[in-house]
């Protein structure tokens, strides 16, 4: 009995870890195993056809790429600038602490609420209609708190003495930020940006009522028009199509492409972080 207990104890923890790994394995295995047969050059390079039962997902891919780009254009400059304001310029007071707490909590706000906000502000309030731009702005807002938080963390890791060194040779505060602080914090900022964008690329709820469409006739690319996107395409193929069994292989193919896009972005972020941690040694 005495010899058995450690095995049971250790086994319990191993079981937990094993189950978690099993989940990841099942997700990857199922998507790859059943999605790979659908993948082909034609699948990612042609328009859907025959009422979505045939053809490829090209417009959904370009739609997701464009959407992510707009998200980046909206959130990256604003987010980094806001983080610089908070970490470099704002005087630490109860006000900045409240602002920080708000921004942290905003990153916990459900994405569907951003969708509602996008609908009320961009689609209806600013009369931008359901469009690529409305959806991009909505995802941009959703991404802002993450970009701000990760950028501020990266800035905070740069010691005050580095800033003082620049000031002491006669740099202005902005010059010290531009020439010394930002370059040093860049890998950390970049990691945060890429991870945030990978999250945005996979989001569905915020774009559902701000501009995404199941099918559009023209190729994506018009800022003021509706567009297709990979996550929404998967959702529609999986739940709303009238011939659900017929399109299942297409749904699997779409899911696999989506997860590949997200993982490639994630691996890029890991790579930046890994390379940076090596440089530090």
């Amino acid at each position: 009995m005495k010899k058995l207990t450690p095995i049971i104890e250790w086994g319990t923890l191993l079981f937990c870890t094993g189950t978690v790994c099993f989940y990841l394995f099942v997700i990857l295995y199922d998507l790859i195993h059943r999605g790979a047969p659908s993948l082909s050059w034609a699948f990612i390079s042609t328009q859907p056809s025959a009422g979505m039962t045939k053809g490829g997902i090209l417009p959904a891919i370009t739609g997701t790429v464009l959407l992510t780009l707009i998200t980046a254009v909206v959130s990256v400059p604003l987010g980094i600038s806001c983080a610089i304001y908070l970490n470099e310029y704002a005087i630490d007071s109860w006000l900045t602490r409240v602002i920080r707490a708000c921004i942290r909590n905003l990153s916990g706000v459900p994405s569907i609420i951003y969708g509602l906000f996008g609908l009320a502000l961009f689609v209806q309030g600013l009369r931008m209609g359901t469009s690529l731009l409305s959806a991009g702005f909505t995802l941009g807002l959703l991404s802002l708190p993450y970009i701000i938080t990760t950028t501020e963390e990266a800035l905070r890791r740069i010691p005050a003495s580095t800033r003082e060194a620049a000031l002491a040779v006669g740099a202005t505060q902005f010059e010290s930020i531009r020439d010394v602080v930002l370059p040093a914090a860049l890998p950390g900022i970049l990691t945060g940006v890429v991870l945030t964008l990978s999250r945005a690329a996979g989001e569905t709820a915020p774009i559902m009522f701000t501009g995404v469409a199941f099918y559009i006739n023209s190729p994506a690319g018009y800022l003021n028009q509706e567009f297709m996107a990979l996550p929404y395409h998967l959702y529609m193929l999986a739940t709303q199509h009238q011939a659900i069994d017929v399109v299942r292989p297409l749904a699997y193919g779409t899911a696999l492409v989506l997860i590949m896009v997200v993982f490639i972005l994630n691996l890029t972020a890991f790579y930046i972080r890994y390379k940076h941690s090596k440089n530090d040694e």
Binding site: P159, S161, T162, E164, A165, A166, A168, V169, G170, A171, E175, D179, V180, P183, A184
Partner: peptide
Amino acid sequence: GMVFQKANPFPKSIYENINYGLKIN
């Protein structure tokens, strides 16, 4: 000018550490 308690070179090359002050000035 000032020299600090803990050496705080810029995270740049040796050359650039000295060149930076010259450049901005």
